[in-house]
Design a protein around this nucleic acid. Structure first.
Lengths: 117, 117
DNA sequence: CTGTATCCAGCCGGATACTG
DNA sequence: CAGTATCCGGCTGGATACAG
């Protein structure tokens, strides 16, 4: 059942309910999406930098997640060189605010999975 | 590639890297797991109460996620009636600390998807 | 009520090749 | 470098039936 839909140009995202937690999970509830956001927080900007992450994004998955995140206005592409055109991926305000979620996961994982601090 | 493994009695969970965010996603990075945690925070305790949530858990998915979360010591089963035996699902300390993550998602979804507050 | 079992379509992940 | 395309096995999810 579909409650609503994130209105994007290309990539519609169905929302299951009006619960903010469920909505958020509909957008970022998978094993890869938030790693892109994490990488940008860590200073990465280009496609190849993401590919080099420790978790080894499959390239098709990376391309898909970048599109989804851009469609949801969490990230945006910024042209930073022409001939050939090259883009950098930046967080929007929406994306920057996801920092709280990433941080919470960082602390939780550190303490409750890795047993640090 | 497997970096490490959450040592549980039944349900081993592979970790892709030593990044706390990636580890956390390996455990709760899907569209359903955190909804169980959310429901317990909302006061739900029994199998049927979870099933009645707005998002309509498929019963096999719910059973699987309860097992995973129990194996990872995020929740625990508490016997609260005998004849027939009935269990309530409670959060452990580990689970309670996931509240930060759920809260962060709640606020983010409210503001950035639902457009409230 | 509290699950388990089964079926199945479809998506996801993983690998790899290819293109501009 | 920055992606796109393709292939494929397996898991996920969704529905439903069944059981203690």
């Amino acid at each position: 059942m579909v409650m609503a839909r994130i209105n994007t140009t290309q990539n519609d995202i169905d929302l299951r309910s009006s619960c903010p937690v469920a909505c958020t999970l509909d957008l970022i509830g998978d094993r890869w999406t938030l790693l892109v956001v994490r990488d940008i927080f860590k200073g990465k900007r280009r496609y190849n930098e993401f590919l080099e992450s420790a978790e080894h994004f499959p390239t098709n998955i990376l391309a898909d997640r970048l599109k989804r995140l851009e469609a949801a206005a969490v990230i945006k592409k910024v042209l930073y060189s022409e001939h050939p055109p090259r883009y950098a991926y930046e967080l929007t305000n929406k994306g920057l605010e996801l920092g709280k979620v990433v941080e919470a996961m960082y602390h939780w994982g550190n303490k409750n999975i890795l047993g640090k601090s």
